[in-house]
Write a protein that binds this DNA or RNA. Structure first.
Lengths: 342, 342
DNA sequence: CAGGATTTGATAGACGTCTATCAAAATTCG
DNA sequence: CGAATTTTGATAGACGTCTATCAAATCCTG
């Protein structure tokens, strides 16, 4: 009924507390035979070290650093806010979180920042990755210095990061295709796409998934080459409005990232009897309003709060050296419509 | 940089450790003037008691009891499984979880069980409520005995429960209506509904929300009185197949709860060229298969694992007397389609 | 102001683990 | 075999909080 302690382990193994401690904390000077007696006892008893007591004793603190892109991207700003709020809550668990910002899409700046991190001051890092070789190298160096590394929102495949917390963007694109295809069923025509930039990895992946589904499952719709909005709402509004006016056969719009406001404005300018189904990404103030007034049909979303929590938990588990690290729940592609808004 | 301790509080307040302790733990024999000096010091320093150390010291353990309905409902069985798994993980945090089962829909049995719970053995209870007055009374008595109570999945409004962890079922029904209405757009006709029993509160609420949306937003569709499946797949299959055969104008099906297998079978029997859009509840082995083979279009889901975790966290917070209790993330109505299956 | 009651302080030991130090025992080696 | 080395044990104090006990100080009452 009560959990076994190191005292029990010592008793069962027939050794002293000191020896148990040496084994538990990987100190040297223990003969193999003795070590295995202790490990056997641990196994027999099902002993698990009381982390709370251990951390209390050593005054353990987790010093984490979150690295986010700077700039006006509203998803990133929401993420920053979530980090700040979770940082306050994490203090209770002896976790100190520092936030650093680097210019968006600037791999060199990101790599420089990573290189500057001192293992004396930081135990673990969560970064929104920019996909570049210099960053991979910097991650490898961080790991070599003994700092734990996970990627957040945007992954860095092929690097030595120890985990990724974010959604599967191909899956997100497929989901969008599946929804929009169904919403437009019976109205064969064309579908317009809007992205931030095709140079951004997640948007490229979303497009890939979207086109996969549309082409195989809804061949009655054809796709128009995407508008690159570059996070500029006016640009998005103008280009989309132009396309919609020029082609009355456009029955659906998929917007893969920033630019929701521009999309909403272009739609508002249409004749009321024209029906265009719309699926966009990221629940923000604007996409929410558009859902409520009926101009958007669905919004795909990633819960940035969960992502931050997941990254913190994953880093702590890595630093605790838990074996195996208890899995963090994967982040889901969430679908919102007017009626299940949170 | 380091958190203040009770020693700091004592020093700043100019009192002894004993007095700080008396204030912190609500022991009597402290003059008001002294108490407020201590409270001021706590406020000034931003002191927060180190729960890990406190629990270590008192050998605190959280004894929770989860009460679930017995029977073949597959959602409830999945929930039971989740409770078992979370119970194992919770042991690490000195939380001992016991599961009890009562006959489904039997308010008397549930109330009896609640009455039998001994505050010497149980600190908190999470129950899947049956909506009845005897249960409300039993909950009140539990609270009077000092046991914390929250409802899980199925709420008990008007009772003295201290929280509810589950989804908003009216919202879920609205979401289903919104999806199915869009899926059937352009094909005006009739929509069939399937429920477990109209006596179950959550199904009744789902129907309410569903009809709200269909009637106001998609008046071109008309609704057929629901089939009551009573958790019997053959009954669901037969009745639904009969309706579909009799009425070629049925373009959509909404199934509010148990009975997914029967729905899938009735659909499989249709001529391949007939297209019926389908939205059901709860992601199970069967609804998952039907999504994958295209016979269901969307599945609404509540994450029972999150619900169990949420209930545990809420109960622990209540028992810790945290003030204000840190909010548990609300449970979302999740939408799954083939392409965002977890 | 004495006496009793109430409030406050001081101290010790506990919870489970960690770290450090020193002594004792066991092993290895010449 | 004795000395050097390695391995093990014993002990003490710490982390932040809790509980208990007893003594000292302060308060109230008549």
């Amino acid at each position: 009924m009560t959990r076994p302690t190191i005292h029990d382990v010592a008793r069962v193994a027939g050794v002293s507390l000191s020896t148990v401690d040496r084994v538990l904390n990987d100190r040297e000077g223990v003969r193999d035979k003795t070590r295995s007696r202790v490990l056997d006892a641990i196994g027999d008893l099902g002993f698990e070290r009381n982390l709370a007591a251990a951390n209390l004793s050593r005054g353990r603190r987790y010093r984490l650093c979150f690295i986010l892109p700077d700039g006006q991207n509203s998803f990133m700003r929401a993420l920053e806010q979530d980090v700040a709020e979770e940082a306050a809550a994490a203090l209770r668990d002896f976790t100190v979180i520092e936030t650093r910002k680097v210019p968006a899409f600037d791999a060199g700046a990101l790599a420089d920042l990573l290189r500057s991190l001192d293992p004396e001051a930081v135990d673990g890092v969560a970064l929104v990755a920019t996909d570049a070789t210099v960053v991979r190298i910097a991650v490898r160096e961080l790991r070599a210095r003994g700092i734990a590394v996970v990627t957040l929102v945007s992954d860095l495949p092929g690097s030595e990061k120890q985990g990724f917390v974010g959604i599967d963007n191909v899956q997100a694109g497929r989901t969008a295709g599946s929804l929009l295809g169904r919403f437009c069923r019976g109205r064969a025509g064309r579908i317009a796409m809007v992205c931030g930039s095709m140079l951004v990895r997640d948007h490229a992946e979303r497009r890939l998934g979207f086109e996969q589904v549309l082409r195989t499952e809804f061949p009655e719709q054809s796709l128009i080459a995407p508008i690159e909005g570059l996070d500029d709402k006016d640009r998005v509004r103008n280009q989309l409005a132009e396309k919609l006016a020029a082609d009355p056969g456009i029955v659906g719009v998929y917007s893969m990232g920033a630019g929701n406001r521009g999309v909403a404005e272009a739609l508002a300018a249409l004749q009321p009897e024209r029906h265009v189904s719309v699926v966009v990404h990221e629940l923000t103030r604007y996409s929410r309003e558009a859902l409520l007034d009926g101009s958007f049909d669905a919004v795909l979303h990633q819960n940035s709060r969960s992502e931050v929590q997941g990254a913190i938990q994953l880093l702590r588990n890595l630093l605790d050296g838990q074996n195996p690290p208890p899995q963090v729940e994967p982040i889901r592609v969430e679908i919102y419509m007017r009626d299940n808004l949170p």
